[in-house]
Amino acid sequence: MASVANWVYFIENFGADIADHITWTIAATIMLTAMITFFVHIFFVHRIFTLSRRNYFITIPM
Rank of each mutant, 00 (worst) to 15 (best):
D20Y: 10
N55A: 07
N6V: 04
P61N: 00
F14P: 06
F38K: 07
T50V: 11
S52F: 05
R54Y: 10
Y56K: 14
F39C: 07
S52N: 00
T25Q: 15
F57A: 08
L32P: 08
S3Q: 13
I48E: 00
N55V: 02
M1K: 10
I58A: 09
T29M: 08
V40Y: 04
Y56M: 12
I42R: 06
N13R: 08
H41W: 08
I48T: 09
A2N: 09
R54A: 06
G15L: 02
E12W: 14
F39R: 01
A5H: 14
A5T: 13
F14M: 11
F57W: 13
F49C: 02
F49T: 01
N55K: 06
M35I: 04
T29A: 06
T23L: 10
T23I: 11
F14G: 06
N55R: 07
I36S: 05
F39K: 03
A16H: 14
F14V: 10
Y9Q: 11
R47M: 07
E12L: 15
F38E: 03
F43I: 06
T50D: 07
A19D: 01
A2S: 11
W24H: 13
A19S: 10
A28H: 03
M62S: 06
V4G: 04
R54T: 04
I42L: 12
I30Q: 08
M1H: 11
A16G: 00
D17Q: 09
I22P: 00
T25G: 09
F43N: 08
F43S: 10
L51A: 02
T33D: 04
D20K: 12
M62Y: 10
R53T: 07
S3C: 07
W7E: 12
A28C: 09
D17G: 09
D17L: 05
F38N: 05
N13E: 01
H41E: 05
F38Y: 04
A28K: 07
M62C: 12
F43P: 02
F14S: 14
E12S: 13
I60S: 06
I18H: 06
W7D: 12
I26H: 05
A16N: 15
T23M: 10
T23S: 15
P61E: 03
I18S: 08
W24N: 13
A16F: 14
R47W: 03
F44L: 11
L51W: 11
L51S: 05
I22T: 11
H46W: 14
H46L: 15
R47I: 00
I22D: 14
A28P: 00
P61D: 06
H41G: 00
F10P: 00
R54W: 06
W24D: 15
G15V: 01
M35W: 02
V4C: 07
N13P: 03
F57V: 06
T25S: 15
M62G: 10
W7F: 15
N55Q: 10
T23G: 15
H41V: 02
V4T: 03
A27C: 10
I22M: 13
F39A: 00
